[in-house]
Amino acid sequence: MVNQSRRDFLKTAALAGTAVTGLSSKTKAAPKNILSEDRMGVLVDTTVCIGCRKCEWACKTAHNLETPSIEVYDDRSVFQTMRRPNSKSLTVVNEYKNSVEEKFPINVKVQCMHCDHPACVSACIVGAFSKEENGSVIWDTDKCIGCRYCMVACPFQVPAFEFESALKPDIKKCDFCFERTKEGKLPACTEICPVEAVTYGQREDLVKAAHQKIKNYPDRYINRVFGEYEVGGTSWIYLASKEFEKLDFPKLGKDPAPGVSEAIQHGIFAYFVPPVALYALLGGVMWINKNKKKSENEEI
């Protein structure tokens, strides 16, 4: 495990985090809501992406979502409308006109940015969301009560709500292929990308590589790495040939968004825990205790 000093505990959600780790003292769960210096990330180079949408295909396949055959993705007519990630597609690629070289349109892959100070984590009233040591922001389906605060809080409008299953409400978003990376595999989209427009690596190295690219090819890139500082930094960072705002990236400051959402959340819930949340929390405690017992039994 990583040296304690190399981590920076997230203030915003530490409470939820310690509560959980405290309860499951015996099961050696990975620490939650910390900012490890070794955390992973992805560098998306929009000047390299060719809009083949193989990442969309791979993402769906990896998440057992309904997936058309791979040849279907050669159809470029989908670019006529701007798309957003939703519960059926955790990532989408959009296309923008390139006024300098018409033959090379600009393609931008969109998914969760895996913020370093995620608004979704601090907005979630039941602590279902967490920032993991490897950089990914994931959520616990069993804890989610479907309140959709994360949807509102996210500065990138990423979390989508699965409307179909009314009985078991759930949020859907890119999970940085948490299950795959746990097994040592690459996130599905970064594995399939033919041109490696999406490069998986340690965030620190990626930021360095991004700046090196800008230095080497000042004509190719604008001098900005999106996500290096935006909302306090994101695990997925972007390079582009023109202003990010023109590619539908939100205009954001350097301050982490949670500050904002925290205020809202605390204003509402300072002296008042909604019954559903409490219920869910208790449910969560029971579930953890049950698990604890189970693992104790297994140990015998």
């Binding site: 040592g184 594995e191 033919p194 041109v195 490069t199 690596g201 340690q202 190295d205 590589a209 090196q212």
Partner: peptide, 24 residues
């Protein structure tokens, strides 16, 4: 592809970037 030096593309990426530059 899973490597430590991310300063240059991996082989698959390098090949495809070359090809696509013209084929596109």
């Amino acid at each position: 592809r899973k490597r430590t030096d991310v300063s240059k593309p991996d082989l698959k990426g390098a090949y495809h970037r070359q090809c696509m530059e013209c084929h596109r």
